[in-house]
Simulated scan of single mutants.
Amino acid sequence: MNVFVVREIKDAFETVRDLEKIGINAKPLPITKCNYKKIPNHKIKYDFILLTSVKSIMIFIRFIDLYKKIHSTIPKIFTVGIETANALKKNSFKNFFVSKGNSHNLSELVISHTKIYSKGLWLCGLHRKRVLKTKLLENKRFLKEKIVYEMAFRDISKNSQIDEKECFSNNVFIVNSSRNIQLLTETLKKLKTFENFLKKSKIFCMSPNIKEEALSLGWKNILILKKNSRKSFLKEVKMILDSN
């Protein structure tokens, strides 16, 4: 069985390395590269901040250090997922709210812990979904979107990182975002191998949002992994692969 890790370039190689340590041979498909943007204006006061990706943490740390110098209190912090929460903890943040689900779960969490007319800042990527902002606005929470990173596409179809013969084998694609499943699908279609890969491939993903996106693109066999930590995620991948 072929195992492909479809992630940002740095994450892809790190995940492959971790998989190899537990006896799983995997191949990186670094389909995106993270480009960071400018730090938001720290002089504006906010009631809450949303962090929906670990990629936003670096900019957030720099932003909040400047913010604390001119404001007496810091905003409430809301995150999605264990990976983002762990990144905050590594930077000595302890008081924040964690949503384990999708945009709907996050919006409900924000609404239950903020007041009407609260003003929030969303440190997000270029390719984000607008459902979150709409839901909060419907409940009289105002959200400013600030793009702090972009997952730029890397065309891996040109450097033979996917062997056309592999589409006839059993395959697993480990995918960590809706954008990456979109780009993977586009790449396979460009190589004219998508239909063949569909027949024998499984998608391992980390959230219902990614599964929904994969289904809409035509993927059939999709499994959501329980990602309580990186260690438990790797353990579950190994357990599933060993059972096949």
Rank of each mutant, 00 (worst) to 15 (best):
Y117I: 00
Y117L: 02
Y117K: 02
Y117V: 00
S118V: 11
S118H: 06
S118N: 05
S118M: 08
S118W: 06
G120I: 01
L121W: 04
L123D: 13
L123F: 09
L123T: 11
C124D: 11
R128W: 00
R128E: 00
R130I: 14
V131S: 15
K133N: 05
T134I: 12
K135N: 13
L137H: 10
E138P: 03
K140A: 14
K140N: 14
R141Q: 11
F142E: 02
L143D: 09
L143G: 06
K144T: 15
K144R: 15
E145F: 04
K146V: 03
K146F: 04
K146P: 00
I147A: 04
V148R: 07
V148G: 06
V148A: 12
Y149S: 05
A152Q: 15
F153Y: 15
F153Q: 15
F153I: 14
D155P: 10
I156Q: 13
S157C: 08
S157K: 09
K158A: 01
S160F: 08
S160A: 14
S160W: 04
Q161G: 04
E164D: 09
E164N: 11
K165G: 06
F168T: 14
N170M: 05
V172A: 13
V172P: 06
V172I: 15
F173A: 08
I174M: 07
S177D: 04
S178M: 13
R179P: 01
N180L: 03
Q182L: 12
Q182C: 10
T187W: 06
L188R: 05
K189H: 01
K189W: 01
K190Q: 03
L191K: 14
K199E: 14
I203G: 09
F204N: 00
F204M: 04
F204P: 00
C205A: 05
N209A: 10
N209M: 12
E212F: 01
E213N: 09
A214H: 01
S216R: 13
S216A: 12
L217C: 06
L217Y: 09
W219K: 05
W219A: 02
K220N: 14
N221P: 02
I222R: 10
I222E: 13
L223R: 15
L225M: 10
K227P: 04
K227W: 06
N228M: 11
R230A: 11
K231L: 14
S232I: 12
L234N: 10
L234E: 10
K235N: 07
E236M: 07
M239T: 12
M239P: 02
I240T: 03
L241M: 07
